[in-house]
Simulated assay, not measured.
Amino acid sequence: MQQVQLIAWILAGFVLARTVKQVRSQHVDAVRKFAFAFLTPTLFFGAMSRADLEVLPSWQMVGGYLVSIMLLFFVVRLFLSQSQVQSVAESNVKSISALYPNAVGVGVPLIFSLYGNEAELMLMGIVFVNLVLILPAFNVLMIRSGEEGFYSYSKVATDPILLAIVGGALINLFGISLPAWLASSIDGIGFIALPIILVVLGASLGFYRTDDLKQQKVSMLLFVKVVGFPFAALIVAQYLFSLSAIETQVLVLLCALPTGINVYLLAERYQVARESTASVILGSTTCSLVSLIGWEMVVSRLA
Rank of each mutant, 00 (worst) to 15 (best):
Q3A: 11
V4M: 09
A8Y: 03
A12I: 09
G13A: 07
V15F: 15
L16M: 13
A17G: 10
K21M: 05
V23A: 03
S25E: 10
D29Q: 14
A30P: 00
V31M: 09
R32L: 07
A47K: 12
A51Q: 11
L53V: 09
L53F: 08
E54W: 08
S58E: 14
M61P: 10
I69L: 10
I69H: 05
V85F: 06
A89K: 07
V93M: 02
K94V: 00
K94A: 02
V104L: 14
V108K: 12
P109F: 12
I111E: 06
Y115K: 14
E120S: 15
M124W: 01
V129W: 00
N130G: 00
V132D: 07
I134N: 00
S145T: 03
G146L: 07
E148I: 12
K155I: 01
V156S: 08
A157V: 06
T158K: 12
D159Y: 15
P160L: 09
V166R: 05
G168E: 09
A169W: 11
L170D: 02
I171W: 06
F174N: 12
I176F: 12
A183G: 12
A183M: 12
I189L: 15
F191S: 13
I196K: 02
I196F: 04
I197M: 15
V199W: 06
A203Y: 10
L205I: 01
G206E: 08
F207K: 13
D211S: 04
K217I: 04
M220D: 05
F229Y: 11
P230W: 03
P230N: 06
A232G: 04
V236R: 01
A245L: 00
A245C: 10
C255A: 13
L257H: 12
T259R: 02
N262S: 14
V263Y: 01
V272W: 02
I281V: 15
G283K: 06
T286M: 14
L292R: 06
W295D: 11
W295K: 11
